Amino acid sequence: MVSVTTLACLTISTLLIAAMPVVLLRKLKPRFGFERREVILGIAVFAFFSMIVERGLHGLVLSNATTVGWLANPVVFVAYGALAAGVCEEVGRFIAMKWLIARQPHTLANAGTSLGYGIGHGGAEAWLVGVFVQMQWIVYALLANNNQLDEHFTSAPLESLMRLHMVLGNLSPQYAALFIVERAAAFVFQLGFSVLMWQMLRERFRYTLPAMIAAHALISLPAAAFQARLIPLLAADAVYLVFGLIVVRALLRYFRTGGGRPGAASPTLHPEH
């Protein structure tokens, strides 16, 4: 039985995360002059490189007895999880941004382009990894409260059904609060990664891709450490809350000082070759 209070908190947290990218898109698009195609490109890149390529990589690794044995070591598991996320997402982001620059070189002068892309990339993550999953748990909770959950999973193994009931039993308002922290921080990081990569490309930094992979992998470490049961969830979320606030402050300062205005970049900048 999931309490009404918990269901209300889960619903509110889901609606807040669902609305976050939509509200930002509507408010920031007129101000920073990015286009819908940049937002759509961000959505497509996350959907393909994270939901298909990265999951395909995990399936390949977990289908091999040797690599499964290596992953039994928590340190190897954490390193692999962090690097897999960094490589897959940042390669996709890099390809997308290089394509944008090659297609319309003048957009390089507008860091707002990266903001539009980041809203798409981060928004796709918020919905695909957060909102849809949370909605699923809300539906399961409603079924459980109406004593209909078991009959909807008659073909499921008993162990899986017991695990489902255990997760539902652990749902709480605190879980809803942590969900907001995790998803909002992840969204902010995607904005930060997008703006940072775009700025590196504007400055023609030679090691943009390796640097971004390393940065993404570092941010992924707490989540991977939690999955490896090396740290508690509360500790991982505390790290993300602190760093998320730092990234928000950095983004606000960057755009307030003119970094995101069309034409703010040096007119001598050209796309990388």
Rank of each mutant, 00 (worst) to 15 (best):
A184L: 01
L71V: 03
I52L: 09
V61M: 02
A84C: 11
A44L: 09
E89P: 03
G69D: 04
H58P: 04
A96M: 05
L57C: 08
T67C: 08
M166T: 14
S114R: 10
L142W: 09
G69V: 06
A79S: 08
G81S: 05
N170G: 14
W137N: 14
V45P: 07
S155I: 00
T66Y: 05
G130R: 13
S155C: 01
D150H: 10
A85V: 02
F46Q: 01
A79Q: 06
N73K: 05
R93P: 06
R103W: 08
I40R: 05
H121I: 04
L41G: 13
Y117R: 07
A184E: 09
I180Q: 15
G130L: 02
A144K: 13
S172R: 03
V167H: 05
S50V: 00
P157R: 03
M97K: 10
S172Y: 07
G130D: 13
N64I: 00
F187V: 03
F153V: 03
E151H: 10
T66G: 13
A82E: 02
W127H: 11
L158N: 12
F49G: 11
I52K: 09
F49L: 02
A186N: 08
M51P: 09
F187E: 07
L149M: 09
E151V: 01
E151L: 02
E90C: 00
T66M: 12
L71D: 12
E54M: 04
F187I: 04
R93I: 00
V78P: 10
Y175T: 12
I101Y: 09
G120D: 07
V167Q: 05
L128T: 15
Q148P: 13
L108E: 10
I101K: 12
Q148V: 10
A79V: 12
A144C: 07
L178T: 15
L171M: 06
Y140D: 15
T107F: 12
L115C: 10
W127D: 11
E151A: 04
A156E: 11
H121F: 06
N170A: 14
Q148E: 15
G59N: 08
F153A: 09
E182S: 12
H165I: 04
W127V: 13
G86I: 04
Q104R: 11
E182D: 13
R93W: 00
L41R: 10
S114E: 09
G86L: 01
K98C: 14
P74S: 07
V181L: 08
A176K: 00
C88R: 14
L171W: 01
A124F: 08
L128N: 15
W127T: 11
R93Q: 05
P74D: 13
E89M: 00
F179P: 07
T66L: 09
I138Q: 13
G130V: 02
L60Y: 13
I138M: 13
A111V: 03
V87A: 08
L60I: 08
A96H: 11
A111H: 14
A84L: 09
G92M: 00
L143V: 08
G81P: 03
L149I: 06
A184M: 01
A82D: 06
H152Y: 10
A102M: 04
C88N: 14
F132H: 14
W70S: 04
E151T: 04
V91W: 03
V181E: 12
F153H: 11
Y117P: 12
I95W: 14
H165K: 06
A177I: 08
S50Q: 11
V139I: 11
H165V: 08
V181I: 03
P105M: 02
V75Y: 05
L158K: 11
H165F: 05
L178F: 15
G116M: 04
V139H: 15
W70A: 10
